[in-house]
Design a protein around this nucleic acid. Structure first.
Length: 558
RNA sequence: GCGCUCGUAGCUCAAUGGAUAGAGCAUCUGACUACGGAUCAGAAGGUUGGGAGUUCGACUCUCUCCGAGCGCGCCA
């Protein structure tokens, strides 16, 4: 990568100018304004304090060393503002960008910084007492994209779903389902959703009235889980492991954890229960592990679960949680630290919740009350690409408003079509070229120096930036950054498409632009693959609404 | 009350401590007999909730106040 070469050159220049190394990472940024060069370094300002010299004076020393070093493509170094070093490159560097994209192809943008890491990413893990709800789509889209992002950095990533198939919620589920099955009285706080009635009815149709509560619950659970898997398949997400909480109890893991924590002196007894002193790890208060009725808490089971993840060989654990669970982060990490000696595990990615709006009013969801908008409802209205793109549009740090009226009725405005259109246009150019008998020759024979239009440079600059964007999005667990790169890149392509014809110009220019289009196809499809959004070669024709043309007249007459 | 998170254009949202805070939507003005107009260009829109501090430089870090969401169970 050109940027890496420049950083090395800069590091060398700093050393040969007799200056100390920059504290922290040596930054080389792509400036927002093109007036500030192709790359910009703030090293001189960072060195002002440790050396006691003026930033501009330091910058001059680095500038001289840099210019004398014979750095490839480097055409000029300017000092600007308080002491920025602005590096200007010869246009030839963009040709190298294009060639490196073509050479790497589907691997373009990948890195190996996380090579050797074996990451377990747990997400969704919704309780199997009802279907996935619409807001849960955010965790699905984000989780899958984050898994893909980490994989682009060389990590092995294992997607996992934790199935809470035991405990109180399941007991309530069992009682509720049995009530529906036998036309009995629903329990207090039971699950009243229509889906419970449907499941009970279909089980009755299949098995008659022969099932006892236990057998009924098992079949009901299977039906719910099958439904969840169907929904996930519709949006295109697959989990390597569905981990059953029951296994932890059956194998005695939970008991082992209790004993291990007790042996360490991390626990204490009070009011007939056994507690863990999580306050030692910064928790707000201590937590109960073993209740006075002899059963263990969810937290205790969770300790066993995360200990098991490490036992399965993962080097790092990541969980994606809704922000409503933020109070449990310290509790979990405290016990895991006590059990494994690893701090900060599991890493918790907190996402703010999705607020659903319909008819201008917020919809409060409750599985128990049964007034849920399911993910399947959403997917009945819009395709998976629209749903994913919508969820990946903004940072997980901000709560998302999902207006069902807008998403369903105006899905054509979704940015995903803008992006997919760019990809389809690239494919379209290929089809038109084939029709005209134009063949793309070898890259070696193409004269890439013809790509001098600002639209062309902009595309190549964006492609050059792509590996950094990927790396930063992975590091920050922020897929929305990639979404924004994709939107920006698509905009640049539409601009190029508008202003720079590929076909019907001089043959040499056509060749260069065909290769540029190919590099754009690679960049766009690689990025969309990470987001889990498809990159179609053909868009369905937008239907022209004939009545729309009459609207002004009818508006006038009305 | 304690704790976590958030507050940026009319609306929805961006911005590894960097230079003139950017997009989309909405509003207004323009562009094409050509590779798919689901397009492109331009205008307008801001005291980044208020205040103080840290430093060469703060939307970003610290403190404080205001506002919003969430959490504070021997539930999961």
């Amino acid at each position: 990568m050109i940027r890496d070469q420049l950083i090395e050159a800069l590091r060398g220049a700093i050393a040969s100018a007799g200056l100390p190394a920059v504290p922290g990472e040596l930054a080389l940024d792509i400036p927002k304004s093109r007036e500030h060069g192709d790359f910009s370094a703030n090293a001189a300002m960072q060195l002002a304090k440790p050396t006691g010299r003026k930033p501009r004076e330091i910058a001059e020393a680095i500038q001289a060393a840099l210019l004398g070093a014979g750095v490839p493509h480097l055409a000029g170094v300017e000092i600007a503002g308080p002491g920025f070093l602005n590096l200007r490159l010869a246009p030839s560097w963009l040709s190298d960008v294009l060639r490196s994209v073509i050479a790497a192809d589907a691997a373009y943008g990948r890195s190996e910084v996380l090579a050797g890491r074996n990451i377990n990413l747990e997400f969704v893990s919704a309780n199997p007492t009802g279907p996935l709800h619409a807001g849960g789509g955010r965790w699905i889209a984000a989780g899958d994209a984050i898994a893909n992002l980490l994989a682009t950095q060389g990590a092995r990533v294992h997607r996992e779903y934790y199935l809470n198939d035991t405990g109180n919620q399941l007991a309530t589920f069992r009682a509720s389902l049995y009530a529906r099955y036998t036309n009995g009285e629903l329990p207090e706080d039971g699950y009243v959703g229509q889906y419970m009635v449907d499941i009970a009815q279909s089980l009755r149709a299949e098995h008659g009235g022969a099932l006892d509560a236990e057998a009924l619950c098992e079949l009901g659970l299977q039906a719910i889980v099958a439904g969840i898997r169907d929904d996930l398949a519709r949006i295109g997400v697959q989990f390597e492991t569905w981990f059953s909480e029951r296994t932890l109890h059956e194998r005695g893991d939970v008991q082992e954890v209790l004993e291990a924590l007790d042996a360490q002196g991390a626990t204490f007894s009070q009011d007939g229960a056994i507690w863990i002193r999580t306050t030692d790890f910064g928790d707000q208060r201590d937590r109960v592990l073993l209740k006075s009725d002899g059963t263990t808490t969810y937290l205790c089971n969770d300790y066993a679960y995360h200990r098991d993840k490490f036992a399965r060989g993962f080097t790092h654990l990541i969980n994606i949680w809704g922000a409503d669970h933020h109070g449990q982060v310290k509790s979990l990490q405290a016990g895991v630290a006590a059990l494994t000696g690893k701090t900060g595990e599991p890493e918790i990615i907190l996402g703010q919740l999705v607020k659903l709006i319909r008819g201008g009013e917020e919809i409060k969801l409750s599985k128990r009350a049964g007034n849920i908008v399911t993910l399947a409802d959403i997917l009945d209205e819009v395709d998976a690409d629209v749903a994913r793109m919508t969820f990946l549009l903004q940072s997980l740090d901000t709560k998302q408003t999902f207006d069902l009226d807008v998403v369903t009725s105006q899905s054509m405005d979704n940015p995903v079509y803008y992006v997919q259109m760019a990809h389809a246009r690239i494919a379209s150019i290929g089809r038109k070229a084939a029709e005209a008998g134009v063949i793309r020759n070898d890259l070696e024979r193409a004269d890439l120096s013809l790509l001098t239009h600002e639209r062309e440079s902009e595309l190549l600059r964006a492609l050059a930036q792509y590996p950094d964007v990927l790396a930063e999005a992975a590091e920050a667990r922020a897929p929305h950054r990639l979404t924004h790169w994709v939107l920006d890149f698509a905009a640049r392509f539409h601009g190029f498409y508008r202003d720079c014809r590929v076909l019907g110009v001089e043959p040499e220019l056509t060749q260069a632009r065909l290769w540029l289009a190919e590099s754009c196809r690679i960049g766009l499809s690689n990025a969309l693959a990470v987001l889990g959004v498809s990159a179609p070669e053909i868009m369905a024709r937008l239907e022209v609404d004939d009545e729309a043309g009459d609207t002004p007249e009818s508006a006038v007459s009305a």
